[in-house]
């Protein structure tokens, strides 16, 4: 309702149709080619600690049909929920297990992947997508992956990440076709890691 519109509320996409499409295509490319870092341009200026890239992916993918979970730093700033509710209409849920999407501003403290919906054997798609705002993204080092979308091997490093990142991914992949999918967003860039990406020992296979 127009009268509840706070004057300081940050804007959504300037062009919802084409901005939304561009962000989706970046996410689609990122999940299609795991580990490959892609540009993600956005002019959004959402309330901190929601980063412009987190906001862009959220606005492109979530709406009233997708329950969203916010991590502690995002929950702590009411303007974040206000921004998301206004621009997407998404219900914000208290428990990670109820969420279709999780927005994570503090990835080092990301809850266990198993706290999120994993899908079921009949409906593995009924699983969460995690969007993690990292500060750095690099394909020169880090965990090595093989799998669909990867020609040979790909390395992906990001920071900060949980200390158990490698074992988490191994466990997440080993449950395939169940599991969660991740989009890692950094300033101006993103990379995807779907559950199909299998971590391998980097010494065994050099990154290609």
């Amino acid at each position: 309702m127009a009268h509840t519109l706070a004057p300081q509320l940050a804007h959504g996409f300037a062009d919802p149709v084409h901005d939304g499409q561009a962000v989706f295509r970046a996410a689609m490319e990122a999940l299609s080619r795991p580990g490959r870092i892609r540009p993600l341009d956005t002019a959004l200026t959402p309330p901190a600690p929601l980063t412009p890239e987190l906001a862009a992916v959220a606005l492109a993918l979530i709406d009233a049909d997708t329950p969203v979970w916010l991590d502690a730093p995002l929950r702590a700033e009411p303007a974040v929920a206000g921004f998301l509710r206004f621009h997407t209409g998404a219900p914000i849920v208290a428990s990670p297990g109820q969420a279709a999407f999780a927005l994570i501003a503090d990835p080092a403290r990301c809850p266990a992947f198993t706290d999120f919906a994993q899908g079921t054997p009949a409906y593995p798609d009924a699983s969460a997508t995690l969007i993690l705002a990292v500060e750095t993204l690099s394909d020169a080092t880090g965990l090595a992956f093989v799998g669909p979308g990867i020609r040979g091997t790909v390395c992906l490093d990001a920071g900060p990440l949980p200390a158990d990142w490698a074992s988490r991914w191994a466990a997440n992949h080993s449950g395939f076709p169940l599991g969660v999918d991740c989009l890692l967003v950094a300033p101006g860039r993103l990379a995807g890691l779907p559950r199909s990406a299998r971590p391998v020992t980097p010494e065994a296979i050099p990154c290609t």
Binding site: A27, A60, P177, R195
Partner: peptide
Amino acid sequence: RRAILKAIAIP
């Protein structure tokens, strides 16, 4: 689009 992303994640 959401369905496409899940489809890609579960080839």
